[in-house]
Simulated scan of single mutants.
Amino acid sequence: MISVEVSYTVKPAFLEQNKRNISLFLADFRQLTHLNFLYQVYLKDDGLTFMHLSMYENEEIQQQILHVPSFLQFQQERDESNLDNAAQVKQLTLIGSSLRLI
């Protein structure tokens, strides 16, 4: 199991576009029902900091997800938006979950 947390802070002018881009790639992710993964996006209390939590059964699935065109477009626009806080990526170790993941 691969678990990853990514957080970043957008500028107010990019907030709505980032939300739209997230909606687009999540819609595409929902079509990938044959892959065993979980991807969630949260907006923190400051209203500008996003946190993405993802879990993948293995590296092959992770790579398939990370190469979905709408996700690549989201990342490109996010990175070109002049973030207030650059994306921070952390690997996580899953201890347990009430959700059956595999």
Score class of each variant (00 low, 15 high):
61 I>Y: 05
36 N>D: 08
82 N>M: 14
2 I>G: 05
90 K>F: 04
81 S>D: 05
75 Q>R: 03
52 H>Y: 06
51 M>F: 13
59 E>Y: 08
15 L>Q: 03
26 L>P: 06
7 S>F: 14
80 E>W: 05
40 Q>S: 15
77 E>Q: 10
47 G>S: 04
94 L>D: 15
38 L>M: 12
99 L>T: 10
24 L>P: 00
72 L>D: 01
70 S>D: 07
29 F>T: 01
28 D>H: 05
86 A>K: 10
38 L>G: 06
62 Q>I: 02
78 R>M: 05
84 D>E: 14
56 Y>I: 03
39 Y>W: 15
51 M>A: 15
29 F>E: 01
102 I>D: 09
36 N>S: 06
32 L>M: 07
4 V>R: 09
94 L>G: 09
16 E>A: 12
64 Q>A: 10
67 H>K: 15
52 H>I: 09
21 N>Y: 02
80 E>S: 08
7 S>L: 03
15 L>W: 03
43 L>V: 07
50 F>W: 00
57 E>I: 08
4 V>W: 02
6 V>M: 07
38 L>R: 11
76 Q>G: 06
12 P>A: 00
35 L>F: 10
96 G>A: 06
24 L>Y: 09
96 G>Y: 01
58 N>C: 06
95 I>Y: 12
75 Q>Y: 04
7 S>G: 06
30 R>W: 12
59 E>G: 11
55 M>G: 09
41 V>G: 03
21 N>V: 00
78 R>W: 03
57 E>F: 03
8 Y>I: 05
62 Q>K: 08
11 K>T: 13
89 V>P: 02
74 F>V: 00
79 D>A: 06
41 V>Q: 10
93 T>R: 08
60 E>G: 04
64 Q>P: 10
30 R>N: 14
56 Y>D: 08
7 S>E: 12
37 F>R: 04
87 A>R: 07
82 N>C: 13
17 Q>W: 07
76 Q>L: 14
36 N>T: 08
58 N>P: 05
13 A>S: 12
101 L>Q: 00
70 S>N: 10
25 F>N: 03
65 I>V: 15
24 L>A: 12
78 R>A: 08
98 S>N: 12
7 S>Q: 14
86 A>S: 12
101 L>Y: 04
25 F>P: 01
7 S>T: 13
48 L>P: 02
66 L>D: 14
76 Q>Y: 07
62 Q>Y: 05
39 Y>V: 08
79 D>L: 05
20 R>K: 15
43 L>N: 03
90 K>L: 12
59 E>A: 13
19 K>E: 13
73 Q>D: 08
77 E>L: 07
48 L>C: 01
93 T>H: 06
98 S>M: 10
91 Q>N: 11
32 L>C: 01
92 L>F: 01
5 E>V: 15
49 T>S: 04
58 N>L: 10
78 R>E: 04
70 S>M: 09
95 I>C: 14
7 S>D: 09
96 G>R: 02
38 L>T: 15
53 L>D: 02
43 L>F: 03
14 F>A: 14
13 A>N: 14
51 M>Y: 11
30 R>K: 15
81 S>L: 05
29 F>C: 02
42 Y>N: 09
18 N>I: 01
82 N>W: 06
30 R>E: 14
